[in-house]
Design a binder for these strands. Structure first.
Lengths: 129, 129
DNA sequence: ATAAAGTCTATACTTGGTATAGAGTCAACG
DNA sequence: CGTTGACTCTATACCAAGTATAGACTTTAT
């Protein structure tokens, strides 16, 4: 399989696949005689794994940690549980931040719901304070 | 006032102040004979304005739009109201995304609350699917 | 006079990709 | 056999919003 096929199958762009390779997420791949990347089923599986992790907003470093763990099946998985728990807690914190932000913005928006001049704009005056 | 004083007064770092200047958020500043940036009260006010906008997660482009508007006091402020409404709606969308993410992560975390081997880790098996 | 603190510019780095340029490769068609 | 078109290659630059240097210059204090 060449990179274009892999891109179509996985939904990752060609550049993204090369990017993941450079970041060390796609190990030990082969090249054809014409220096083309050659992929097998395993790589597609790996890319889908990465894609799923990314859709959960994990960083590349986190994904790399998970992938490295996968190659050590006899070790304890406690570090994985910890990683997910930490990630979840980060998400919860971010939600709280954004909810506070939302309240501020709603409050500010309410200062100027009509069409006034810039001089009399409740929003700008609020921000200026 | 020199940049170090401004940094202390506003809580922006020296590099950030220079960065904002390069981005066009701090117009027309003077230089001393030794080529040092010279600031007045107005600049500090402007920096605090920027800081408040940034604390509301507005982009630099958005802040620039607001600052440009401030120099046209007789125009309508409808574009400002629109900008804030759009920003608020972006925040709300992001909160919804993160709440969905949170559910997924909680679900995934529940697949493996004990300490198992990597091979048997409910989280990794979930992700692998 | 000299040392320390402050400032200057320019550049590189971060994250997670995206978007080129210019060169090389491969398959099909006439 | 040549050539066109589709594909791939590497290398580089770009985005946001700063942060962090290096090396040179200025000012302040002793």
């Amino acid at each position: 399989m060449k990179i274009g096929d892999v891109a179509k199958t996985t939904g990752c762009s060609i550049q993204t696949i090369r990017f993941y390779e450079k970041k060390g997420l796609l190990p030990e791949l082969k090249r054809s005689s014409g220096n083309y990347r050659v992929y097998d089923k395993g790589t597609i599986e790996q890319l889908l794994f990465i894609k799923q992790c990314r859709s959960l907003d994990m960083s590349i470093t986190e994904v790399k940690t998970l992938m490295d763990s996968r190659s050590k099946p006899d070790q304890s998985c406690s570090n994985i549980n910890t990683l997910i728990a930490k990630h979840l807690s980060d998400v919860i914190i971010r939600i709280e931040e954004l909810n506070a932000l939302k309240s501020s913005l709603e409050n500010m928006a309410s200062k100027c719901d009509q069409d006034k001049t810039i001089r009399d704009c409740g929003i700008l005056n609020y921000l200026h304070t």
